[in-house]
Design a protein around this nucleic acid. Structure first.
Lengths: 186, 203
DNA sequence: ACTTTACTTTCGAAAGC
DNA sequence: GCTTTAAAAAGTAAAGT
């Protein structure tokens, strides 16, 4: 059993969504002065919400990408909120959006320091290049996530599609680090 | 010499053309970066593996040659930075780094962790530092890695700071700027690492 | 020297070059 | 591969006071 309970904080959730109908991005731009739309630069229109603080990309296909939410639920409600605002702003949207969570990013504190160099030698599928980045990059197979490890004992987990996968990844790694005596607790 | 290359150099199939093209690039680098035959040999070996795995498709040959060369340097503990290699072939460091990561992932290469000690000699010779200072810096770095103050830090920044610390301790008059330039890091980095080393080594 | 801003790494989707 | 979005980790860098 791990000696400490990791503190996990979900920092960002990326969700894709679709209202299954063509959208007129120029019309949205006219009705919503705050949106950003530069088709030369990028095909998506940026629709920002103050709360939850998110940015939703809207494409002419009716597909969307919502980023910045702090939870799966928050991402779903952000998309609902965007569709609601579009309707209030005179944009016809027939169906409600179908939302899929695509990625969850979390920061973690294991509560003890990590022997980074030794971890680099013992963890499979890992890369440690301090000349390029201070963290050790580890690819976990199940759940399929990528975890960045820092000597401070803090981590970043990304690639998960479900919140439980974040916790499973962290617990798997935490156990592995303790098994191999790569943790330092004070 | 360069058997990997010579063994097929007579045959004119596309793969060998690619290989020949890639290595005309490498010949220029050998002198520019003062590389040993062993490193060139290893580069050829790694590049051949990448070629066999089809990693070269749609990617820039110079980028992969640079990445294979950097991998060979790392593998043989030859102290050359990513920046050295990138500047040598005149490609962006970021592109070489991306190709290098690709090689590590796809070829399952395991590299030794860079030891800051490997950078001391070069910085010392460019900055014209004494043998005594060099020895002292080596001591500092050994102790630093033992107590893990080096984790996550740029090896060149650590080596530069250790040399600067040794200069201060032994009274060799060298500015942070001199050493920073020789190491290819900023004075700010030397200052930060210097501070960290002094505290960690209780000096 | 100090602060602020910004860039490095990881991830995924979107449409199109 | 690139373009755009957001977010954390810790290190390095550059600019402004």
């Amino acid at each position: 059993m791990p000696q400490t309970k990791p503190i996990v904080s979900i920092e960002n959730v990326v969700a894709s969504a679709s209202v299954d109908q063509k959208m007129d991005l120029n019309e949205i731009t006219r009705n919503f002065p705050d949106v950003e739309y530069h088709p030369d630069q990028f095909p998506g229109l940026v629709f920002r919400l103050k709360s939850p603080k998110t940015a939703t990309l809207i494409f002419t296909s009716g597909k969307m990408v919502c980023t910045g939410a702090k939870s799966e639920e928050m991402a779903r409600s952000a998309v609902k909120s965007v569709v609601q605002k579009l309707r209030k702003g005179g944009i016809k949207v027939k169906k409600d959006a179908v939302v899929d969570i695509q990625n969850i990013v979390a920061s973690i504190n294991l509560g003890g320091k990590i022997h980074l160099e030794q971890a680099a030698r013992t963890l499979p599928r890992s890369m440690y290049e301090p000349e390029q980045f201070p963290g050790l990059i580890h690819r976990m197979l199940d759940p399929k996530t990528v975890i960045l490890l820092f000597s401070s004992g803090k981590l970043v987990c990304t690639g998960a599609k479900k919140e439980p996968d974040v916790y499973r990844s962290v617990n798997n790694l935490h156990s592995l680090l303790e098994e191999k005596n790569l943790m330092i607790y004070d | 010499r360069l058997r990997t290359w010579d063994s097929r150099s007579q045959v004119h199939e596309p793969v060998d053309r690619n290989f020949r093209q890639a290595f005309s690039e490498l010949d220029r680098l050998k002198d520019k970066l003062a590389l040993s035959d062993a490193v060139i040999e290893k580069t050829a070996y790694i590049y051949r593996k990448a070629l066999d795995k089809g990693l070269v498709r749609g990617r820039s040959i110079p980028g992969l040659v640079a990445a294979a060369l950097y991998a060979a340097c790392r593998n043989t503990e030859t102290p050359r930075t990513l920046t050295d290699v990138a500047n040598g072939i005149n490609i962006k460091r970021k592109d070489v780094a991306r190709c290098y990561r690709l090689l590590l992932r796809e070829l399952d290469l395991k590299m030794p962790v860079v030891d800051p000690i490997k950078g001391v000699a070069r910085i010392a010779s460019i900055a014209d530092l004494s043998e005594k200072t060099k020895r002292k810096a080596l001591e500092f770095l050994k102790e630093a890695s033992r107590i893990e103050v080096s984790a996550g830090k740029d090896p060149m920044g650590l080596a530069a700071a250790a040399l600067y610390l040794a200069c201060v301790m032994l009274g060799e008059n060298k500015t942070q700027k001199d050493i920073a330039q020789a190491a290819g890091v900023t004075e700010v980095t030397i200052r930060n690492r210097y501070k960290g080393l002094k505290e960690a080594l209780k000096l």
